[in-house]
C-alpha cells in the first residue's frame, strides 16, 4: 500500500503520521510538499494535524488553496482514500471535500487529552476492521474542533450513516459531559458521501504502537490495509 503525507507550512503531525504508516504499518510512504501540483499514484493521502498558515483567518482557510489540494480533489474524485486528521480535517471542510465547518471549542480553550470515541459506522474503508459500537481511546489536541453543520446537512449525515466517530464515555454512552468541544451531535469524525474521505479531530497516529501506551489508532490503518489489499 502506498501513502502520501501532505506537508503544509505549519503542519506538525506530518512526521508522526509518516512514522506510523512507514515504520509501524510498513507502507510505502512519501512526503508531498503543498506546492506540488500533482500526486504520484498512491492509495491514501494523509492531511496531517498542525497549524497550517498559523491558523490565520480561519483554520484551514488558506491551506485549502495550496496547489496540492487540487491534486487531492482529483485523487478523491477517483475514489481513492483521503484522511484528514485535526487540522487536516479542518482543511477538508474548508475545501468542501466534507460538509460543515469548525467553530471554537465551547470552552474557548485548547484541549489536549485522551478522549473516548464510539465507532458508529464500519461500512467504510477506515473502520471496516473495527467493531460497530466499539469504543476507542484516542487523543485530541485542538482549539477549534466544535463541529457545526445546519439541520439539513446533519440529517443527511445521519440518514447516510456518515458519522464514523462520536465522543462518548468509556462505556460508550453519549452525552454533553463526554463531548469535549461542543461538537454538533457529538461528531468527532465523518466520511464523504462516497465514503472514501474521512475527517477526524482525534489523532490516531499518536496511538498506533504499544510503546505509546495504546494501539487503538492502528486499527484505522489496519482497516485501510485490508481494504486496499482486498
Amino acid at each position: 500500500m502506498k501513502a502520501a503525507v501532505l506537508v503544509f507550512p505549519g503542519s506538525n503531525c506530518d512526521t508522526d503520521c509518516f512514522h506510523a504508516l512507514k515504520d509501524v504499518m510498513k507502507m510505502s510512504v512519501e512526503y508531498v510538499w503543498h506546492k506540488e501540483r500533482s500526486l504520484a499514484k498512491v492509495d491514501l493521502v494523509v492531511l496531517p494535524g498542525g497549524f497550517s498558515y498559523g491558523d490565520y483567518l480561519r483554520t484551514g482557510a488558506i491551506a485549502r488553496f495550496s496547489p496540492a489540494m487540487e491534486a487531492v480533489k482529483k485523487h478523491a474524485d477517483q475514489g481513492r482514500y483521503v484522511i484528514g486528521i485535526c487540522n487536516g480535517f479542518q482543511i477538508l471542510l474548508e475545501a468542501g471535500l466534507l460538509p460543515g465547518a469548525m467553530l471554537r471549542n465551547k470552552t474557548l480553550s485548547f484541549i489536549c487529552k485522551r478522549v473516548w470515541l464510539k465507532v458508529e459506522d464500519v461500512n467504510n474503508p477506515f473502520t471496516c476492521r473495527l467493531k460497530k459500537n466499539g469504543v476507542l481511546s484516542v487523543p485530541i489536541a485542538h482549539g477549534e474542533g466544535n463541529y457545526y453543520c445546519d439541520d439539513d446537512v446533519l440529517k443527511k449525515l445521519q440518514d447516510q450513516s456518515r458519522v464514523v466517530f462520536r465522543y462518548c464515555s468509556q462505556a460508550g454512552q453519549l452525552g454533553e459531559s463526554f463531548n469535549p468541544n461542543g461538537s454538533r451531535d457529538h461528531i468527532a469524525g465523518l466520511v464523504s458521501e462516497k465514503r472514501n474521505v474521512l475527517g477526524m479531530m482525534p489523532h490516531p497516529e499518536r496511538v498506533s504502537e504499544a510503546i505509546l501506551g495504546c494501539e487503538d489508532g492502528k486499527k484505522i490503518w489496519e482497516s485501510l490495509l485490508a481494504e486496499v489489499s482486498s
Binding site: L57, R58, A61, I62, F65, L93, E94, P99, G100, A101, L103, Y148, C149, D150
Partner: peptide, 8 residues
Amino acid sequence: KLLINPVI
C-alpha cells in the same frame, strides 16, 4: 472566495 466561510 476567502474572507468568510458561508457555512457559519
